[in-house]
Design a protein around this nucleic acid. Structure first.
Lengths: 162, 162
DNA sequence: TAAGATTGAGTTGTCAATCTTG
DNA sequence: CAAGATTGACAACTCAATCTTA
């Protein structure tokens, strides 16, 4: 499996540069989120908790549909459901039924949830800056956005195929 | 928590562009690996299995130290150990002790493991191309590599701090 | 019938404790 | 004591099945 296919070419393989880039990106993502989680550990919130609460505070009423979380975070809907259940037990959020669509459910942040994320936010932001954002220039942030948008659009366009 | 901080500035927050870029990247990574996993499902290998076997085939003898996997993949060493145990049960790899460092252990690919990854590889590569690599130009692949290298170097430099 | 959501069972991953060797 | 590795208990996630409403 030696591959020194530097020039775009052979569709059966990836070039070394392509493989390395993908590996490096995966490793970065894993280590970065691990680090963000560590940094949060003192606050009593996991990185996942933080993500959910941050999503809720984006809404003026502090509420979001389960299905919307599923889309925004890329979590299986059952994952959202399970995680919300655990957060409810800890008093960070509640569940409310949706008046307009009776199948639906809202996740709503509680006062305690708000306190928790407000306490954690400054430190978390500092960590994201220190280990990610502040290391990049504007053009790199743009590049990430463009790449991700391209890939996500393509994924959505082919969500039917096996 | 409204933030319309477009101009670099305030270290207490992230700009919208910065937040969006990070969210998009996380979403991309999640959906991409989910898709790669789906595409592999017919082969009897999970994406994680594939990753391990691919690492092993990089070595001429098809062997790699557990600790090296831990570093390369960014997996907890216990995760490597557990996953290898499961792969052993399925006959894809074996464990061997290291002669030079008696604490160490090698993971070694079996003939069956080799068959499995060789069968899965063409399809997997095609999927990585279709949903990722072929959507990007050379400069974007480069950009990813640079960003990831920068971030990973910085993480390594600060691995001691809490 | 499909879409939103939950549930339970099984799988995978983490964390702390332990064992062995450097 | 530190480094490599494993183990077991627990937490988080996935997948399929189910329930309810559109």
């Amino acid at each position: 499996m030696n591959n020194v296919n530097e020039i775009s070419g052979d569709p059966r393989w990836l070039s070394d540069a392509e493989r390395e880039a993908w590996k490096a990106l995966s490793l970065m993502q894993l280590q970065l989120t691990a680090r963000l989680g560590q940094a949060l550990s003192g606050s009593g919130l996991s990185y996942q908790d933080y993500t959910v609460l941050a999503g809720l505070t984006d809404d003026p009423d502090g509420r979001m549909r389960v299905v919307e979380f599923s889309r925004q975070l890329g979590w299986e809907k059952s994952r959202v459901s399970h995680h919300v259940s655990r957060m409810i037990e800890r008093g960070l959020v509640t569940r409310e039924s949706c008046p307009t669509d009776k199948r639906g459910a809202f996740v709503v942040i509680t006062a305690e949830g708000r306190r928790a994320i407000e306490a954690a936010a400054p430190g978390h932001v500092a960590t994201v800056r220190k280990f990610f954002i502040d290391l990049l220039d504007e053009s790199q942030v743009e590049a990430i956005q463009e790449i991700a948008d391209t890939v996500l659009t393509n994924l959505k366009a082919n969500c039917d195929e096996r």
